[in-house]
Design a protein around this nucleic acid. Sequence first.
DNA 1: GCTTAAGCGAGACGGTACGTCTGGTCTTTGG
DNA 2: CCAAAGACCAGACGTACCGTCTCGCTTAAGC
Lengths: 191, 191, 191, 191
Amino acid sequence: MALPRTGPVRSEPARVAILDATAALFAEVGYDHLTIEGIAARAGVGKQTIYRWWGSKGPLVAECLLEGRLLPGRLTLPDTGDVRADMAAWLTTVFRVMEAEQRLVLSLIAAAAEHPEVGAGLRDSLTGSASISGRLDAAIGTTANLQPGALTGELAEALIGAVVLRALSREPAGPVDAERLLDAVLGAPTG
Amino acid sequence: MALPRTGPVRSEPARVAILDATAALFAEVGYDHLTIEGIAARAGVGKQTIYRWWGSKGPLVAECLLEGRLLPGRLTLPDTGDVRADMAAWLTTVFRVMEAEQRLVLSLIAAAAEHPEVGAGLRDSLTGSASISGRLDAAIGTTANLQPGALTGELAEALIGAVVLRALSREPAGPVDAERLLDAVLGAPTG
Amino acid sequence: MALPRTGPVRSEPARVAILDATAALFAEVGYDHLTIEGIAARAGVGKQTIYRWWGSKGPLVAECLLEGRLLPGRLTLPDTGDVRADMAAWLTTVFRVMEAEQRLVLSLIAAAAEHPEVGAGLRDSLTGSASISGRLDAAIGTTANLQPGALTGELAEALIGAVVLRALSREPAGPVDAERLLDAVLGAPTG
Amino acid sequence: MALPRTGPVRSEPARVAILDATAALFAEVGYDHLTIEGIAARAGVGKQTIYRWWGSKGPLVAECLLEGRLLPGRLTLPDTGDVRADMAAWLTTVFRVMEAEQRLVLSLIAAAAEHPEVGAGLRDSLTGSASISGRLDAAIGTTANLQPGALTGELAEALIGAVVLRALSREPAGPVDAERLLDAVLGAPTG
DNA sequence: GCTTAAGCGAGACGGTACGTCTGGTCTTTGG
DNA sequence: CCAAAGACCAGACGTACCGTCTCGCTTAAGC
């Protein structure tokens, strides 16, 4: 038997204001200097309204991530038919973003390390928007290491992992590095 | 003209007590709940003694890392002559440690994301102790993707990156996953 | 022309439940830890229902007081014909109550200090139930300081004031103190 | 054996700033709207410095009271030789202060009701500065109710109690009321 | 061996942010 | 239109740490 729920429902304007404020402050100050008080003030909201629905900044950041408020949308994998070239272009873009928004990217990794929700959100965000392994499947046969039966899921993981590691080491990377990485992991183009 | 330095020199017992306390607390509560006050109390030391020599918890953790106080020493890459098998054994061990000490590993990643020193230390610790790319060089020709001219540095990066990503996603991994990852990145063993 | 009053009228069960809850919580936690939220929860009532009719906890407590829900009814001045003995008995009882329910009594004073309504209610409650000055009028001539023309209103005020001061100073008082107070203020019995 | 106390010592400027701020805010907003945060902000002090030494606003207000920062110094009982006239003048002054600073006086009563320290402080402050019972001792024989053996302590208590009650009831009082109260409690002047 | 200055433990200080609690208002659902 | 339920903005609570700053003590180097 259902309890008779009454009273006001969750305020959508408040929810949106909070997520907006979170994304803005995340970009400004990074994950570890993000404070609930700051978010509440920026959003024009009581702290309790945040604690009521999210409980801490981890899930809050995760929700921002999943709604695409943190990572710029330009990170989608292009599709020109030439998978190898698309991947190179995408990697180059990722490297550029990493350099331009180093703090944001590192903050995201820190957030992922501290909160499972953010980790999962980050993974969904990356693989969802870019769908790398799907594209690799379509490219089987075009490079030395992409033969029938290739474990494209693992290859995608290795590629993204290499990117994350690059971010952690703060070494700047450019188009040449993108090419080298693809050569190493996918092998040279065939034919 | 040099000023005449006088007075006592840095206290080694204090230094060691601080690093011990840091390592112990890091394992207990993780990176983000690590506090300078807690370390000072545990080490029986004044806070100023920590700030005098390290300045913040980042470099402190980095120094613990470089002295091998955080990661168990068992993470060295074995050397039986069969590089592929050695890698598989090492990866399996790494996966096991990641599962057993998830918080420690994730805290380390978080620390690396927040402090360059820790990132560098982590990188040195991993590649230094395991020296993966050197071993891959020695194994050229033994797997499909390890042909002469192979970019072993990038391959090592991809492998470790995949491991870090696995840690961030909290998905448990075992020996089978280790094999699949190696198959994907290094290719099947030849002959 | 009168507007036709329609819709439900004020709920008596709600009113009673609120006053009951207020009296109970007042006795349990005292005036300054009394909260509207706590009262509403205990009474099974919405907060708005309290704010609609009382506005704050001051008038609420005053109403409880005037309905006799706070002070035990035993504080009435006995009437044996011997005014001096009656007063002594009453004072002794008051002192005993003050000791047994110190928090309640002090909370009442605090409430009176913060809200005029409570102050007035307290005054009415004390002088109304005990009607001291009336009895003193009837006793004129029986003690040294109760001569014709005595200002019995002021004397009553002085007596009750002394009692309040005793409560504020937390000094325990007993029958002997009651006698001394009466001796001092009313003078020794004549004849 | 005394512990070897070392380290910095309590900061007197901070202590004074806190008491100043408390007294000022007490006069401005009254006891129940007094907040630790407000005091800390006004004093330019961290909240912890207040909690370290006082623990709550009760003892803080008590200390202000005992240092004479709350009640104006003009409440001292004059001494012209004519005790009856001195008392009347003093009472009139007290009534005037009560009217002019009603909130402060009532706040003080509320504070006394909530914190024993304040109650004790208030009592010391009143009897200390005015020393009523001592003066009454000296006036024995000059009024009808001040005969040898009079319980001057109780009489003083009754007088001050009447004053407190007047404050609680918010009834304005003037010189005439002062005279009537003295007539009632002390009796008419003899000879 | 006396002087001098730095290292050390301890911990108070001005602050920031925490997560909780309550105040008083507003909004929804139902009788 | 009233009542219950409870979300909302606001802001104080008392706690935990931050990084800085004395304290008084105990060392070493250098005269």
